[in-house]
Amino acid sequence: MAHGIPIMLGYLSVSFGIGIMAVRAGITPFQATMISLTNLTSAGQAAGIGVIASAGTLFEMALVQFTINLRYALMSLSLSQKLDKKKFTLPKRLAASYGITDEIFAVCSAQKEALTPAYMCGMIFIATAGWVAGTILGAEAGSIMPKSVTDAMGIVLYGMFIAIFIPPVRKQKSVLFTITAAAALSVLFKYAVKGVSAGFAIIICAVIASAAAALLFPVDEEETDEKEAAE
């Protein structure tokens, strides 16, 4: 559980932004809390809230979540190799897989020993508590704070995204290429290509940019590890 505390503190602040964003999109604090409790992921939830706000289709919702959260499949795959096979029975695997996030993955994969259910579930429990509490605080604060404050807080989550995708740009041209291509395509979809909903636009931009980056800059095993550690 101790390893979960820094994650919890980080989640408190990020999910505060999610809570505010949800209320601004017309979602009630209770619904926002349910979204956080059942999803436990920032980018996926932010995009999902966008789909709800724009009254998108359920197919769009499913595809958006699939694309944005696909990275978790890779993390789950990687963690599945590190499990204490005796202690991790099927029900425990079913339970622990709920909490595989970027941060929990990073901490778990840094462990030298095999992962036990107690270790993973303790960390997931405390991280989830922070995530849900932050959402409630953000959503409630969003309902009572003056508009000038909630307007300004609308940028919090995006500020965090910038803090994730900018630092690697200094070291890796490939990431600079990826984010520039994705951002340029996204601007194109916003202003030039009409009629594509926001959720689909994100998917198309991300897939094209990543596919091109993977062709031009294939990664080595080391780079993948470096990124996992950074997250």
């Binding site: 995006y158 951002a183 993948t224």
Partner: peptide, 19 residues
Amino acid sequence: RSFLYYIPYAVLAAMTIPA
């Protein structure tokens, strides 16, 4: 593996700009 490595960055950039 490369594609999956770049996906999170691409998703975050596309979600952030111009939103």
